[in-house]
Design a protein around this nucleic acid. Sequence first.
DNA 1: AATAGATACAACCGCAGGCCC
DNA 2: GGGGCCTGCGGTTGTATCTAT
Length: 548
Amino acid sequence: MSHTTTNDSEDGMLSKDQEDSPIDEGSCGMGGGTVLKKGPWTSTEDAILVDYVKKHGEGNWNAVQKHSGLSRCGKSCRLRWANHLRPNLKKGSFTSEEEKLIIELHAKMGNKWARMATHLPGRTDNEIKNYWNTRIKRRQRAGLPLYPPEVSSQTFNEDLQTQTIDEFSGVAAPHCSLLQGNNYEIPDGMMDHLKSNQGVLSYAAGMPDISVGSMLTHGLGSSQYCSFTRPLIHRPKRIRESETLFPGFGGNTGLPLFDQFQGSACGKISRPELSFSYDPDPGIRGPLGFGFMPGSHANLNGTFSTSKPYSGIMKSELPSLQYPETDLGSWGMSSPQPPSLEPVDAYIRSPSPTGTVHSDCLSPRNSGLLDALVREAQTLTGTRNHSPDKSSNSGAVTPSDAVDSSMLNLYEPEWEEYGCSATSVFSECTPISGSSLDDCPPAKTLPATTVKTEPVDHISNEDGSQQEKPQISLSRPDALFDAGWFEQSSECSKEQSAVTDPIAAFLGDDCYGAYKVSGGTSMGSQGWGIGSCPWNNMPAVCQMSELP
DNA sequence: AATAGATACAACCGCAGGCCC
DNA sequence: GGGGCCTGCGGTTGTATCTAT
């Protein structure tokens, strides 16, 4: 926000931060004996910087302080220029197209803000990063997925087609980064493996102790809040995302890390054939996209339209000497996209599912997240009150099939300790989209005092009708949680065997044997609470660096 | 009206890669 | 090859503003 940088010198007043901002050479380290200022930039400083860049061009930022008299380190200058002063910067709220693109790009790249910014002309990595972080917070709070299903699935599909590097080797493939950064999804690599081991869908079947407390307190499924943390392994920061077998599983996910299964006893887990069929048809795609985070109950139909492009809304406040983008149209989203982003491009160019993009965006501050969330929530509410079509896809496991209500009853008392019924918790806090919880009146099971009502997207058909809840696709990682998970559980008498057997299938017999030796058998007794995941305590059988 | 919480944004920090000597 | 410098990136923090209570 420019409020901290624009008003100060214009009215001749310096903010407190500027008056006595800590001045050090800090990380810039280029003071050369001159104290370097920190904190918000003044318009005077902006002018100096702009003038300098006009004369000398970009780069050599450390020379700015030397030659222009600016008491700013080069780093700060570069940042200021890049984020606020350089021409062609596009200010204002993200348009819906940009939002979609960001979602797409994030699904592909993870937290590669700079790379993402290259596909969003006029936007800075910082903007995108802030947008995403805000979006994450919102959706986490609302228990919604990070990615709309069509984005997730599309990316997942592309990953399958483009991925050539064995992700199990720990080498990140260019497009296998679906789950990087703030990730809540199961990487395709894992999904490959899961799909090739059918039992794995029941791998979690017996997870009997999904700690509601953890769910509630940790916000469910967020990288920040979900407590499936793994032991921290010291590795270079830069390879943090690719280091793990599952990008995005580097610490906070709902499933154990694969490298914890890997070990000398297991050998390297080979990537199975992609023999499963994946139906990219959004119409029958599962309600939860691949990018659904735990805690999601969303039922998206693929329309992730949020706000209408608001070209008319420009940031009311621009940083001093800001070069406002005067021709927003010049940044048309149809600008050439890198080949690798063709799908994205197509996605962007494709007409809105409804032909128009509606928006309630009334404020420049409203980037569309709010109405997006509202729509989604409304959709969820609507779909939850509609029985799913259980017969439309034999190959898919419907939520109703998947969730054995007896399972819910099993945990009802415990869940109710937290002020909500199991069903409500499941419906609100788990990836069981819609699921059999359709039978449960949300209003009854989910007191407003228990779960804060969050605005979420409402996705409806153009005629206002709720879209039919699609079937769960096994291509979704959350199918683990909502489909086979519980399905298997009910079939296996909900005992620990329901855990161990699938795990054996998941790991393979050899690996499972090693896993048992390593203490994995205790998982049943330890419980599977999100906040007390036994994986935390699992010894690392084999680190990636030890793998051949 | 006061307060707390949420939001959006700006800026800083640490780290790593690239380049040059 | 190694060290220093510069640049860029991603994570985090700080804060003004908005909104709800």
